[in-house]
Each structure stands twice: as structure tokens, then as C-alpha cells.
Design a binder for these strands. Structure first.
Length: 663
DNA sequence: GCCACGAGCTGTAACCGTCC
DNA sequence: GGACGGTTACAGCTCGTGGC
């Protein structure tokens, strides 16, 4: 592509690839679309239209390059001038699996030496002819840019310019970062991760799911005791010992699920990998005592069985048939094809695929797996409703919220209030719903933030099983997408039981991990309740009885109602004002949100122009007056507010009233 | 096949700052 | 004070992941 294009030329990309970059650097081989940056960058644009007055003082970079990049940290977020986010390199590879790969030289820099970072070293591919696919991206992704005081965008230089930029020595010190603007939430999470990483780095981990350091392996082998005093080590079947006997060299020469090694001093040193296909398959009967599997399609029996479940943490899952055609064997032996979850669309002139109704509910505790087969018509047993509604019983699963929503759609009568419960208020409070749904992948992220990597997306049950149980979970399509409506065969029962029992075992592994490292886990942080509590706006009634639309705003802890037709402030403006009334200084708000102070000032004043200065208390108005300097554009653009405050707080207001108008 | 969710990319309105 | 152009924030889109 030409130098004007978005994609850098093969030549320039080749230069990047050929560079013998250090791990600290991050750009070694580009595989994704976005540009990743680890360090704050100076960017100096000398485009013809660039401002004549540079906003930052620059170290001398490559003078021939349209854009110069330095790894020197920015002195202040307020002084960094950047163009808007621009996509950079393109690649047919999926974005989320794009992993800047380390060059061999990267091994010179041990991961442990990288202060303030939490990402694992990039997957090493030495001697691998076929890069393995099965690694879950969340166990293998480099993290995004670390939290800095930078504004939202870091080093998103225009691709047009970058494409013609020769990689200078300085540019080599840049690393990969998403071109996506890191949100405030991202920043906060990154800060949390950094803090956690520091703490975790001090600890000695024996996760019980990765390779166990020799010293502790002998100690723990078959002797792990859970909090309830039960012996759990031997539950990890005979095949476990095979893994434990694997020599480090065996493991390191493999690829697949990556496990980071933590030395006795707690530092991350290197990683080893295990090919998932070498892992044994998960099966509930490998555990001791072997759980009983109870399959029923009788409501009474289901109630009895569910009543036998003990503890306040249960495995939970649902199965339903994807929409499609299914062959069903009739009582007389004949085979009939039926359509499930398909509806005829006149517009499309064909069937539209949907979903079948929930056909199977799985619950389990340590000793009992209950498979309640609802089939086509059976209603949810009352005991199951009781469990699902109870906030005190945690129901474990991956994308458990989706399961909850599915139940809510299929059986709304049990989890949503009747319409008679509607109040006259503008939102309808829902007292029921499905509570205590505990998202396992969020729990894993909380307990094992380094192992799961950055981000907040869901991690599949199979990936969790590989990592925390060292077992493969059968997720083959032939069973998964099968017909769950008809009476289940043994394969389906096993699949369903394994799914739900694996959730419980993963939870136990995570809990053990947290206990061993003195991490207090508040399970309520990982709940995904489904209570249908979506506010339903009801138009207010005007004096003449006609419905008028008003907007209710929550600012800080105060609620204010705007008049009809008044356009509410933008979310950013409301957020800034909300923070201000909570007592946060404006410069702090700007830093927290990664925006300029002037922008934060503008947001607050703009919001106040809408809600009115009276919204603020006397003290808040004084704070505003004192925190925003007189000679700012903020006051120029909000003169009305300026005059109000000046009159109130400026002792020389009278003599300067004309000046105020001139601002 | 569907659904839900998160991450990354992109267009654009709004904002900021300078010039006349 | 208006015009203008660069900068910033945000909404909406696409795509990939997970679930069945």
C-alpha cells in the first residue's frame, strides 16, 4: 500500500518484524489491527496544518520522519497533543487473538524484571511448526497500556505518517497497545491489576492447576484439604499423576495452555505450556466420593432431589435445543422430523431460527448431581424456583446471567411480578427475579487476575477447566447442539452432569487458591443477578392531564427533574458535575477521567447551565468559584454563571461588574 | 442457527484555541 | 465576536468470544 494508505507497506512492516526487539519493547511482530503502547509517547506532528505552537517540548527525534516518537514520559497529561485515534495496521487475523510475539532475544529479559506490568511473556514459539489455536486469548493476551496519567489516547499516530516512518532507535522502545481509547474503567482496572500483581508477586503460588513446584508438589500430592476438611487431592484421578510426572522439559517443549511459573521468591520467571490434548478428559466419576447422578422428569421427584442438595454454593446450568430440525423416534419405532425453535416468517418467506424452551436444568453439590428434565411441557419444580430466587444460595456457572435471562424468558411467571404489582412511580420495583447467580469467569478474574489476563470478557468453561482442573471438558457439538427435549441418552446425561460438576470443581479450585494465598473473596462481587429491574419510564402527567416527558437526573446523590423539552447534559458533563458535588476537585476529576482540566471545568459549567446554579449548595458554588481561574475560556463561555458567582463571592464585584461582562 | 457481551474501530458533534 | 481548524469525547458499528 502506498504511503498514503492506512496499512504500512510490507517493507516497513518487514523492518519492524526483523528488528531484534526486547520484550520490554513489545513491537516485534505485528499481528493485529491496533497499535499497542506501553510507555507514554511524545508525538510531534509536523504536518502542514499542525499548530504552529507546539504543545510539548520535544527531544530531538528523527528529523526526517513526519512524526517522531520518544519513550520519554510525558511531563503532564495536559501537555500531550495527539491526533484522534486512527486504526493502524490491518490484518485478516481476528483482533482478539492478536498477540505480539516475542522474538528469541526476548528471553533475555525475564518477565519478573518488568516492573509494574502484569502480562505474561508472549507465547514462545520456538520449534513449533504449527502454532496451536486452542489457547484461550485471555490466557495469552498481553495487557493493554498500563495506567498512566496520560489522556485517553496514547500514541495513536496517523497511519499515513507512520507508514513512512523509519523505525528509529527510539521507536523501538515503544510497544504494542490498543488504539482503543482506554476508558476510565480500564484505567481503574489496570491500576487494580498492578496493585494485585505486586501483591501476588510476593506470594508463593501453588495453584493446584498448573505444574506444581517440586518442593510443594510432594507436600500437596493427594493431601490437599479443603476448608471443610475434606480430602480433595486424590479426587484428581489417576491421570493427574501423569501430568505431575511430566518433566519441565517435556512441558516446556509443548504448546497450548500456558501456565506461568512462580519461583520460591514469588517472582514470575518463565512459563511452561501443556498441550490441551494431553490433558485428561473431565468426568465426574473421577472424583471421590463419586457424585450420584439423579435424572428425573417428575416434578415431585425433582423437588425431593433438589431438597437433598447441601451447602450454599451449587453448580448450575441449563440446556435447551438450538432451533432446527430434529429426528424424533416415535413410540411405535418410526422416526419423525420435528422443528424446534423455528417460526415461519412471512417477510422472509422461510423459517426463522430461534431457541427451544429450556429443556434441562442441572444443579449439583459435592455429592449429588440433579438433572431435571423439563422436556417440552414440564414446569420448573417449586424447589428449583426457591433455589433460583434465593440470594443466599450461589448458583455457579459461566455466562450464568444468560441462563438466568433464558429462564426469565421461558418462565416469566415465576420470576417477574404480575402487572398488578406496578406502582405509580416511574420505575417498577421488582421484588423477585433470579438471584445469587455467580459468574465463574468473573470469579476467576478476581482470584487469578494475572492468570486470566486483562479484560473483562467471559472465559469459557472449557478454558477454565483446562486451567484450574487440568482437564479437558467435552464441548463437542454433536451433544451440545443436540435435542435436549427428548429423553436423554447416557451421553447427554454425562455431558450435562460434567458441565455442572466442572463448575463446582473449578469454584473449589479457585477458592482453594484464594485461601492458600490469603485472598479474601467476596462472592457478592461476582454476582450476575437477573431481576428484570429495568426501569420502565412512565410519562409524567402535566396540568392539563396530557402526558409530558420530563427527564430525571441523578447527580451525586441528588435527583433533579428537568422541565419538558429541556435537553439534559451529556453523560460526560453529568459525570463531571456528579464528581464535583461529591467533593472531588476539578483537577482530580480531569486526571481521573483522562481529560483536560479545562474540559472538566467546561463539563461542570455546561451541566450547571442546564440544571441551574441553584442546584449547588453555597459551599459548592464557592468551591467552583475558587477552583476555576478567572481568565479561562470556561467563564467566557458561561458568562451567566460567572456573573452569578462573581456577584456572590467577589467582594469587588461591584467595581468589576463591567469587567465581568467583558470576560 | 440464535443470543449476549466486550473490545476495537470509526464517524462526527462538540470543544478548544488562535487569528482577524 | 465570529470564523476557522485542530482536538477530544462519545455513540454506534463490526467482529469475536462465550453460551445453547
Amino acid at each position: 500500500m502506498s504511503s498514503d494508505g492506512i496499512i504500512p507497506s510490507k517493507k516497513s512492516k518487514g523492518i519492524l518484524e526483523d528488528l531484534n526487539l526486547d520484550l520490554e519493547v513489545g513491537i516485534g511482530k505485528w499481528e493485529g489491527k491496533a497499535v499497542f503502547t506501553k510507555e507514554p509517547l511524545y508525538i510531534r506532528s509536523i504536518r502542514p496544518n499542525a499548530p504552529k505552537t507546539p504543545k510539548t517540548s520535544q527531544p530531538s527525534g528523527s528529523s526526517t520522519s513526519p512524526i517522531s516518537i520518544s519513550s520519554t514520559p510525558s511531563p503532564s497529561p495536559q501537555t500531550l497533543s495527539r491526533p484522534r485515534a486512527v486504526p493502524h495496521f490491518t490484518s485478516p487475523l481476528p483482533r482478539t487473538t492478536a498477540i505480539p510475539t516475542a522474538t528469541p532475544s526476548s528471553s533475555k529479559t525475564p518477565f519478573s524484571s518488568r516492573r509494574g506490568t502484569t502480562e505474561p511473556p508472549p507465547t514462545q514459539t520456538f520449534g513449533i511448526t504449527q502454532p496451536p489455536k486452542p489457547i484461550h486469548p485471555f490466557f495469552n493476551r498481553t495487557r493493554t497500556a498500563p495506567p498512566t496519567s496520560q489522556p485517553r489516547y496514547t500514541a495513536h499516530y496517523s497511519s499515513t505518517e507512520a507508514s513512512s516512518t523509519q523505525p528509529s532507535q527510539e521507536s523501538q522502545t515503544t510497544s504494542a497497545s490498543s488504539s482503543r481509547a482506554p476508558s476510565t474503567l480500564d484505567h481503574n482496572r489496570d491500576r487494580e491489576l498492578d496493585l494485585l500483581a505486586e501483591e501476588v508477586g510476593k506470594l508463593h503460588f501453588d495453584y493446584g492447576y498448573g505444574r506444581v513446584p517440586a518442593s510443594s508438589a510432594s507436600q500437596n500430592k493427594n493431601n490437599t484439604i479443603n476448608s471443610s476438611g475434606q480430602r480433595t487431592g486424590d479426587a484428581h484421578d489417576k491421570s493427574k499423576s501423569k501430568i505431575e510426572e511430566t518433566t519441565p522439559s517435556d512441558v516446556e517443549s509443548s504448546t497450548g495452555v500456558s501456565f506461568r511459573q512462580i519461583s520460591s521468591n514469588g517472582k514470575l520467571q518463565s512459563k511452561s505450556t501443556v498441550i490441551p490434548s494431553q490433558l485428561p478428559m473431565f468426568h465426574y466419576d473421577q472424583y471421590s466420593p463419586k457424585p450420584q447422578i439423579a435424572y428425573t422428569s417428575s416434578t415431585d421427584e425433582a423437588n425431593d432431589l433438589l431438597g437433598c442438595l447441601k451447602g450454599d454454593v451449587l453448580g448450575f446450568d441449563l440446556e435447551w435445543p438450538p432451533g432446527g430440525k430434529y429426528k424424533v423416534t416415535q413410540p411405535d419405532g418410526s422416526v419423525k422430523t420435528v422443528r424446534i425453535g423455528m417460526t415461519w416468517s412471512k417477510e422472509k418467506g422461510g423459517y426463522v431460527f430461534g431457541q427451544g424452551r429450556t429443556a434441562l436444568m442441572q444443579f449439583c453439590d459435592e455429592r449429588l448431581v440433579v438433572l431435571v428434565h423439563l422436556g417440552e411441557k414440564m414446569d420448573i419444580p417449586s424447589k428449583a424456583i426457591e433455589i433460583l430466587r434465593s440470594p443466599k444460595i450461589y448458583k455457579l456457572g459461566v455466562q450464568v446471567r444468560g441462563d438466568g435471562q433464558k429462564l426469565l424468558r421461558d418462565f416469566p411467571q415465576h420470576f417477574t411480578p404480575s402487572t398488578s404489582a406496578c406502582s405509580s412511580s416511574e420505575t417498577i420495583p421488582y421484588e423477585v427475579g433470579i438471584k445469587g447467580l455467580l459468574e465463574l469467569s468473573y470469579l476467576a478474574r478476581g482470584v487469578d487476575p494475572i492468570g486470566t489476563g486483562p479484560g473483562s470478557t467471559l472465559i469459557g468453561l472449557a478454558a477454565l477447566s483446562q486451567r484450574y482442573l487440568r482437564k479437558q471438558l467435552d464441548k463437542s457439538n454433536d451433544v451440545r447442539k443436540g435435542n435436549w427435549v427428548e429423553v436423554l441418552d447416557q451421553k447427554q446425561k454425562d455431558y450435562a452432569a460434567n458441565d455442572v460438576y466442572a463448575s463446582l470443581q473449578i469454584y473449589k479450585s479457585l477458592r482453594r487458591m484464594a485461601q492458600e494465598n490469603n485472598f479474601e473473596v467476596n462472592l457478592d462481587r461476582y454476582l450476575s443477578n437477573v431481576d428484570g429491574s429495568v426501569p420502565i419510564p412512565r410519562p409524567a402527567t402535566g396540568d392539563n392531564g396530557e402526558a409530558v416527558m420530563r427527564t430525571e437526573l441523578e447527580i451525586g446523590e441528588r435527583i433533579i427533574t428537568l422541565g419538558e423539552g429541556v435537553k439534559p447534559p451529556s453523560p460526560a458533563q453529568l459525570g463531571a458535575l456528579s464528581d464535583f458535588v461529591k467533593g472531588t476537585r476539578i483537577d482530580k476529576i480531569a486526571t481521573n477521567k483522562g481529560i483536560k482540566v479545562a474540559t472538566a471545568e467546561g463539563y461542570i459549567c455546561s451541566a450547571l447551565q442546564v440544571v441551574g446554579a441553584d442546584f449547588l449548595t453555597d459551599e459548592e458554588r464557592r468551591r467552583l468559584w475558587e477552583e476555576i481561574p478567572r481568565d479561562t475560556y470556561t467563564w467566557k463561555r458561561n458568562r451567566e454563571l460567572y456573573n452569578v458567582l462573581k456577584k456572590e463571592f467577589d467582594s469587588e464585584a461591584g467595581s468589576e461588574s463591567e469587567t465581568a461582562n467583558d470576560v
